[in-house]
Design a protein around this nucleic acid. Structure first.
Length: 887
DNA sequence: AATATCACG
DNA sequence: ACGTACGTGATATTT
């Protein structure tokens, strides 16, 4: 293997890092977010590549014509903010302390320095990684030079990699041709004029056809389309100039020798002191082994993974795993894609991967199934990740034996955006693993196993390995935080419930859905004509930008108020104009219809499977409050509020011989509030078993119950909602369309009426501020970092979250308990009726006609008694031949 | 990839 | 004075 060198574009990465992270300072007031982000990326790359050499290049800020133009251009928008500027020297100091080779030279840009170094290193036989945030460098990609572009995705950084082929795949041109392509399309931020009228698509087409600008001019009469050809003819000079500007120099005069760029001693005392002073706490653990040895300690225990494709060897390994499972936990991960492709196992000190199917002639999926049967028969403690996806291939009866580390780490911190293996390894094992998209990209597991055997097997083994190693820490932490019961009795059993629901799916009448869509199309066409008529021209009504111009400029409608990047055309703005301007009503109606058509009529149709059912997915680790979410498609936002939309529920139907039973909690969140706050009057109000909004209105407005007007009731209802959302006078005013002052008055009256609620909400906020998190009745936590913010808006948001999360979260806990019990009970009683959907406070059951009464009772019972609160939970059950009728 | 809008609880 | 209701996901348009 040839030696590796990593070259980093210092300014570009620092810049990316700075904008990716929220502002962060140490206690001295030094800004550190850019430095922190830079170091995170640096360490990620070092851990991943373990290169032999490393250099970081900076351009010196003053010189070159090209650069001045750039500064000026940026100056017109926003210069480098002070917070970032001061981190440049700071970063250099830190890197110097780490004894990392830094290269900067006046007169050259970082691109040119990097280009020169990369080409030089390649010539000398090195494998080169060029790290930058800038796509310009793609022109340098070769087999030996890999361009790496870190992207700041939610939840961490991911790195896009480009060798020659990757550039071709992404842009349709070779790296060399990329220069010409860029020269044609131009780049304002680099001050490359390009050829007017040619964008990315056209440029790619021209260059992939002709190979270069020069050749394109030689055959200029063949260049298509006409517009591009003419523009090229008229801008010949500019095209050639652009090419010069776009070309990165590879022949800078640099006094640089690769051998001097080795980095031996990055974890030294001076560096440690810098990290400590900057309070880069998450990075400090990297210095743990410092005093023991100063040499390359990043060469940690490289776990060895074994790949098994022989039946005999597999049997023996299963034997060993079974023996281990009798006294210790075993980590596993089933690799599936339609079928089982393999199984990763981790036990004791051994981690291995069985491959079956196409990857092994000897080992079949049945062999793995048999092995799994033996293993789960013997052992009692297993750890994995994403259990729900593996359940189709696991034996029965694994409940209570398997832990899912993604579920556990979600409970420990529900704010993360993903709970993949690499996230968990980073958080609990301080291990840097490549993410799926980094090594796999967008390909399938099958391709992945074929093309990148070594990386893919390591990837799968890491799942089993990480599950085994991280699970004890996660379980311990859950216990410490009082969430072990939540985990064991709610979240893990729910995995199986959701799996059942996904498998069952819900039947949809395809023909009727089609008819519904056609009906919408008729209405859309009619409205479209009418709108064009009224506005005097044709335009794209779906474009808020174009619509804004038509309404507020051409037609001069008043109130072009709400802006951000133009006029707001949102429903609440338009509704206020509706009465006076007929076109506005048409637009609102048009919006409604197109929404129904695209999202529901057309959108749902593509998910109907061969069995005539839609098998949506339910996600358990998304919502910060503990709710479940639904995708592909989202079955939790099927229209109901408007009649026309509601109609679509008629296409959701039960199987022959079945009916739908729909059960929903009545005001579960308000009841939870009554319980948690212990407010006596609110509890009393519920005991009366009367319309709660009317009671509230009666109390708040000091009006006899019978005399409450519908207006008063509406206001009281809005206040009740507001309370649950984390009340604010502004928000309530918005919701009720009244002034902030009036809203404030309502809120005060409400709190006078229910003083216990006020005290409870105040307590939640102060608890959140003190502890950094709030909890539900079942111990589920929601951290609220916003409460510590000095920014008023951010902090206010945190306060509302502190008031809302325990209520919404407790309601979520309760219905989860109900779901598990309902599902279990139906199965235990051997009933054919089954749970299909959960919509936050509602369960939809497909009930066999001969079981209706039994199931109705069961639903009532289980849902009502899922929690024992100070106020009774009320459940309404409805029956119907489709979802529309059952609600 | 981000923004605007709107569907639900 | 600040400028917002809480929690999601899908689609179309624009950058």
């Amino acid at each position: 293997m040839s030696k590796k060198i990593v070259l980093i574009d210092g300014h570009s990465i620092l810049n990316r890092a700075f904008y990716a992270l929220p502002v962060l300072t140490n206690s001295e007031g030094l800004y550190t977010n850019g430095v922190l982000g830079f170091l995170n990326i640096l360490f990620k790359i070092l851990d991943e590549e373990k290169p032999d050499y490393l250099t970081i290049a900076f351009d010196v800020h003053q010189p070159t014509f090209r650069h001045e133009m750039y500064a000026e251009y940026k100056g017109t928008r926003k210069g480098m903010p002070e917070e970032l500027r001061e981190q440049v020297p700071l970063l250099k100091e830190v890197l110097q302390a780490m004894k990392i080779s830094i290269l900067e030279k006046g007169g050259y840009e970082a691109d040119d320095i990097l280009g020169t170094l990369a080409v030089k290193a390649e010539k000398e036989g090195y494998q080169v990684s060029l790290v930058s945030g800038d796509r310009d460098l793609l022109q340098l990609a070769t087999e030996a030079i890999r361009i790496r572009i870190p992207k700041t995705k939610k939840g961490g950084t991911e790195i896009e990699n480009y060798n020659t082929n990757d550039v071709v795949e992404t842009y349709g041109v070779t790296p060399i041709e990329f220069i010409d392509m860029k020269a044609l399309m131009g780049d304002t931020s680099d001050n490359i004029p390009g050829v007017p009228g040619i964008g990315e698509k056209t440029a790619s087409k021209i260059i992939s056809t002709f190979g270069s600008i020069e050749n394109a001019y030689e055959h200029i009469e063949e260049v298509m389309p006409n517009k591009a050809r003419e523009s090229m003819i008229n801008n010949r000079e500019q095209a050639y100039l652009s090419k010069v500007l776009a070309t990165i120099k590879t022949d800078c005069e640099l006094d640089y020798r690769v051998e001097e760029a080795d980095y031996q001693d990055i974890y030294n005392e001076e560096a440690y002191n810098y990290f400590k002073r900057l309070e880069l706490k998450s990075l400090l653990k990297r210095f743990d082994g410092m005093s023991l040895s100063n040499t390359k300690s990043s060469e940690k225990n490289e776990t060895k993974f074994e790949v098994i494709t022989e039946k005999k060897k597999a049997q023996e390994t299963f034997d060993e795993a079974v023996r281990t499972s009798l006294k210790a936990a075993v980590g596993f991960y089933l690799v599936t894609e339609g079928d089982v492709l393999g199984l990763a196992l981790s036990y004791g000190e051994n981690t291995c991967l069985f491959l079956c199917g196409e990857e092994s002639e000897d080992l079949a999926a049945q062999d793995i199934a048999a092995g799994l049967g033996r293993l789960f028969g013997a052992g009692s403690s297993f750890a994995t990740i994403h259990l729900k996806e593996q359940l189709p291939y696991l034996p029965e009866g694994t409940e209570e034996k398997i832990s899912d580390m993604a579920i556990g780490s979600y409970l420990l911190n529900p704010l993360q955006s993903s709970y993949e293996c690499d996230d968990i390894a980073r958080d609990y094992l301080k291990l840097t693993l490549p993410s799926q998209s980094e090594i796999l990209g967008k390909g399938s597991y099958k391709e992945f196993l074929k093309l990148k055997k070594e990386e893919s097997t390591a990837f799968f083994c890491n799942h089993a390995y990480t599950a085994l190693k991280a699970m004890p820490f996660i379980l311990e932490e859950l216990k410490l935080k009082g969430m072990d019961s939540l985990y064991k009795t709610i979240e893990m059993p729910l995995v199986y419930t959701l799996y059942d629901m996904e498998q069952r799916g819900i039947k949809v009448n395809r023909e009727e859905l089609k008819e519904y869509g056609d009906k919408l199309t008729v209405g859309i066409d009619r409205l479209e004509k009418e709108i064009y008529e009224l506005s005097g021209e044709e335009f794209n009504i779906n474009s808020p930008k174009q619509l804004g111009v038509i309404l507020f400029e051409k037609l001069q409608l008043p109130n072009g108020k709400k802006t951000k990047t133009g006029y707001s055309t949102s429903a609440d703005v338009l509704e206020k104009l509706q009465a006076e301007y007929p076109i506005v009503g048409k637009i609102l109606e048009y919006r409604q219809l197109t929404k129904l058509k695209s999202t529901y009529a057309d959108g749902l149709a593509v998910y109907i499977g061969t069995d005539g059912r839609i098998h949506g997915k339910f996600h358990q680790t998304i919502a910060a409050t503990g709710r479940i979410s639904s995708t592909e498609p989202n079955l939790q936002n099927i229209p109901i509020r408007m009649e026309l939309g509601r109609e679509i529920r008629k296409v959701f139907i039960p199987e022959e011989g079945y009916v739908f039973l729909d059960a929903d909690y009545s005001q579960i969140e308000l009841r939870v509030l009554a319980h948690m706050s212990g407010d006596e009057r609110l509890i009393e109000a519920y005991k009366q078993n009367e319309d709660i909004h009317r009671i509230t209105a009666s109390l708040v407005f000091h009006t006899p119950f019978e005399e409450v007007t519908s207006e008063q009731r509406r206001s009281a209802k809005a206040v009740n909602f507001g309370i649950v959302y984390g009340i604010s006078s502004f928000g309530l005013g918005q919701g009720l369309n009244i002034s902030k002052k009036e809203a404030e008055d309502y809120i005060n009256r409400y709190f006078d009426t229910y003083p216990g609620v006020k005290a409870f909400l105040d307590d939640l906020v102060s608890e959140g501020k003190k502890e950094g998190y709030v909890t539900t009745l079942y111990g589920r936590r929601r951290p609220i970092p916003e409460l510590a913010s000095s920014n008023f808006m951010t902090r206010s948001f945190g306060e509302r979250v502190a008031m809302n999360s325990p209520i919404q979260g407790t309601a979520a806990d309760i219905i989860k308990i109900a779901m598990i019990r309902v599902n279990e009970k139906l199965k235990a009683l051997k009933l054919r009726s089954r749970l299909l959907l959960q919509i936050h406070d509602e369960l939809l059951i497909e009930a066999s006609k001969d079981e209706i009464e039994e199931v109705r009772k069961l639903l009532q019972e289980e849902m009502q008694h899922a929690a024992d609160l100070l106020v009774a939970l009320e459940v309404d059950v409805n029956e119907g031949p489709n979802w529309y009728e059952a609600k």
